[in-house]
Amino acid sequence: MLTPIVRRTIGATLAAAAFAGASPAIAGQCTAEGANALAGAPTAPKGVTDDVLGSIDLGPEIEVADRQLRMRKLVVQPGGVVPLHSHKDRPALILTVSGTIKEYRSTCAQPIVHKAGDLTREAEGISHYWVNEGKVPAVLYSADVHHGM
């Protein structure tokens, strides 16, 4: 059973997702476009919890086999890392709820700083990793279309 706060957060995230494509700018975007090879990127998580809050099998819902829409809560401790991963064929929206976190993205020459209230769009095959260089945990909610059931 989801708590009222989690239900409101999920609702707000999904509402933001519905309007994200129509918005000309999303906070915390790349300010220096360009290729980034992400040399030396971390490949293992560190100081991060990743809890699935809920999911929906998209096969019966909209006839998209072997996919699920899921909502996760990630807490990245100071010094913590969400390791290098790709969003090829796995779009997502990330809402930074509290704290500050840096994203190192394959399409951005400089890291992107995300703060509370920022919504990040992850799609079109980007690769990236996240690092919490702050002094407090960063709390993120992730809504993505994930492979496998």
Rank of each mutant, 00 (worst) to 15 (best):
M1I: 11
P4D: 11
I5D: 12
V6Q: 11
R8C: 06
R8D: 13
I10T: 07
G11P: 08
L14P: 11
A15W: 11
A15T: 15
A16W: 09
G21R: 14
Q29T: 12
Q29R: 14
C30Y: 07
A35D: 10
N36P: 06
A37D: 11
A37C: 04
L38V: 05
G40N: 12
A44S: 14
T49Y: 06
V52E: 15
L53K: 00
L53E: 08
L58G: 05
G59E: 12
P60L: 02
E61K: 14
I62T: 14
E63S: 15
V64Q: 14
D66V: 09
L69V: 01
R70D: 07
M71T: 05
L74I: 03
L74S: 00
V75H: 03
G79Q: 11
V81T: 13
V82C: 06
P83F: 03
L84F: 08
H85S: 06
S86D: 12
S86G: 14
H87W: 06
R90K: 13
R90P: 00
P91R: 01
P91D: 10
P91N: 08
P91L: 03
P91H: 09
L93E: 01
I94D: 06
L95D: 02
L95G: 03
V97Y: 09
E103A: 04
S106M: 04
S106P: 03
T107W: 06
C108L: 06
A109I: 06
Q110H: 14
Q110S: 13
Q110A: 14
P111M: 02
V113K: 02
D118S: 11
L119F: 10
T120Q: 09
A123T: 11
A123P: 04
A123Y: 05
E124V: 00
E124C: 01
I126V: 11
I126N: 06
S127Y: 02
V131Y: 01
N132D: 05
N132F: 00
G134P: 10
K135C: 09
K135S: 13
K135G: 12
V136K: 15
P137W: 07
P137K: 04
L140K: 00
Y141C: 02
Y141F: 09
S142D: 08
S142V: 01
D144Y: 04
H147D: 13
G148C: 05
